[in-house]
């Protein structure tokens, strides 16, 4: 897990307003290459919005986001380069329903990276094997389970050879028995050194792979630190309240 000192993702005082509602209030975060960051917090805390500011799906109201030396925002070409460097996995998968798993993964490499169809196909098949779905290459998303769809979505994002992978509540829409297969792929990715920023409620997973846990509430970062600290000895009252509510409801102490 090699990290360099120059952050690969740098969000400086990012503020986001939706009309009169301030969703993010001067949030600053720097993520180093190879680092695994998990963002937790109650709904409405702005964590998903923050994630989407990183690849420009949400333009910031003020502040600055820089990814791999490129400023997020600006012209279409620049934005496209940023998005090639940043892979995103969505809560609702967002696979293209009219294309097979293979075609879903090939689309970006062919249309954006300019690969030939054969190269793209080889890359796609390798990725499908990596996520354990080689046999589903020619299936349409409608025929795949939620867990399988999400794994294809991860492969689709990886096909662009991103430097950073963003995960927006990747398992929240899955039936409980399907969550494990997706977390397994994410664990594998982490062990290979991918820089990951994950918004999730899966505390055990966060404790497992995170280098740093960020706690957000009402548009600000309330606390951040290594998972051991956050989960067993949270420093702020808001973190404690949030964790109690989350862990209490699930009925077992997750972060041990």
């Amino acid at each position: 897990m090699a990290t360099s000192s120059e952050p690969i993702v740098s969000a400086e005082r990012v503020t986001k307003d939706f009309g009169s509602l301030r969703v993010l209030d001067s949030v600053t975060l720097r993520v180093l290459r190879g680092e695994r960051v998990v963002i937790i917090g109650p709904s409405g805390s702005g964590k998903s919005t923050f994630l989407r500011c990183i690849n420009g799906l949400e333009p910031v109201t003020s502040g600055r986001v820089v990814v791999d030396g490129l400023e997020v925002g600006g012209t279409g070409v620049q934005l496209s380069r940023v998005r090639s460097a940043v892979g995103m996995v969505f809560q609702l998968f967002n696979l293209f329903p009219h294309k097979t798993a293979l075609q879903n993964i090939m689309l970006g490499p062919v249309k954006v990276l300019g690969l030939s169809r054969d190269e793209a196909k080889r890359r796609a098949l390798r990725l499908l094997e990596r996520v354990g779905l080689s046999d589903k290459a020619d299936e349409y998303p409608g025929r795949l389970s939620g867990g399988q769809q999400q794994r294809v979505a991860i492969a689709r994002a990886l096909a662009m050879s991103p430097k950073v992978m963003l995960f927006d509540e990747p398992t929240s829409a899955l039936d409980p028995e399907l969550v494990g297969e997706v977390l397994e792929v994410m664990r594998q990715l982490a062990s290979e050194g991918m820089t990951m920023i994950v918004v999730s409620h899966e505390m055990a997973f966060a404790a497992d792979i995170a280098d740093r846990v960020i706690v957000m509430d009402k548009g600000v970062i309330v606390e951040e630190g290594p998972p051991q600290t956050i989960f067993t000895n949270p420093q702020t009252a808001r973190t404690r309240v949030f964790l109690t509510r989350l862990l209490g409801r699930s009925g077992k102490h997750e972060a041990e």
Binding site: L57, R81, F90, L95, F96, G108
Partner: peptide
């Protein structure tokens, strides 16, 4: 669904390709 546009944008698909390959068929 808006998510389709977001997925296409997330992989950096330009507007024309998004329209032709993702939006129109659906």
């Amino acid at each position: 669904p808006k998510g389709q546009l977001e997925a296409a944008a997330a992989i950096g698909l330009p507007r024309t390709a998004t329209l032709i390959d993702v939006v129109l068929p659906q």
